[in-house]
Amino acid sequence: MPDRLAVRKTYKLYVNGAFPRSESGRTYEVTDARGAFLANAAHASRKDARDAVVAARGAFGKWSRATAYNRGQVLYRVAEVMEGRHAQFCEEVAAGEGLSAGRARVVVDAAIDRWVWYAGWTDKLASVLGSANPVAGPFFDFSLPEPTGVVAVLAPQRSSLLGLVSVLAPVLAGGNTAVVVTSRERPLPAVTLGEVLATSDVPGGVVNLLTGDAAEIGPWLAEHDDVDAIDLTGAPAGRALELERLAAGSIKRVLRPPAEEPDWTADPGTGRMTRFLETKTVWHPKGV
């Protein structure tokens, strides 16, 4: 018999650095892998998604123009703060994904280390992806990677923390801001990640986390004119085609979903960063 009744957490959205309930007033029941009640999560609406896009656009200027060194430190700080909440993440991942304590620990370790990996990338991208171009004329000509802008991310449905971090961190490393629709069935680690982000020097609005149904919110994000790119990794089965068609309306960059959810423990490579980067080329004449 516990000597104290636990104080349960209210799981809310994370939008523009704050934790609002859904404006719709809707919630849905989240259960553990065996079907036992865990929490009532906020069920994000179209309006919540639109608010999140406004927040992400508002945050883009500052985040994209922060120095690469600064962005790297902020992402590293996320890893530091996550480490302090290690036990909590293990509990939530174990419950939501039905993992053993040992397996959950491995997943949480990998999620924290993934932030560290991407933190180290921010100030390497320009030298690895940029170039000085030897044009046939008296010009200095160089190309540099720049962030695409506001990226909508449909997070993986199965891997609720490692998968989420694996799709979110590369978007941020390049200087983009994000609107994420979390795993529908397993949203709780995402909300806790929001609490980490809120206390890790990540400016409000850079990451916005919407718990709810990608099948419902995805189309609004895919056709939103102020969203520059969409990652369909966690698109509900059978909906990717429709979402990609909607995204074509404003020439969004689209990352198509894999045939099945990948092994998130594998080496991530640079592909998820380069997908959400543009190349800018600048010319200037040489002369005395």
Binding site: N133, D141, S143, I251, E278, T279, K280, T281, W283
Partner: peptide, 27 residues
């Protein structure tokens, strides 16, 4: 927010120099 910026020149092209757009100018 543009893929090619010409400073004190304009409409220069070269095969060694990446060309392409941001936003609805393509990818």
């Amino acid at each position: 927010r543009a893929g090619v910026v010409w400073a004190n020149t304009f409409n220069q092209f070269d095969p060694t120099s990446p060309f392409g757009g941001y936003k609805q100018s393509g990818y």
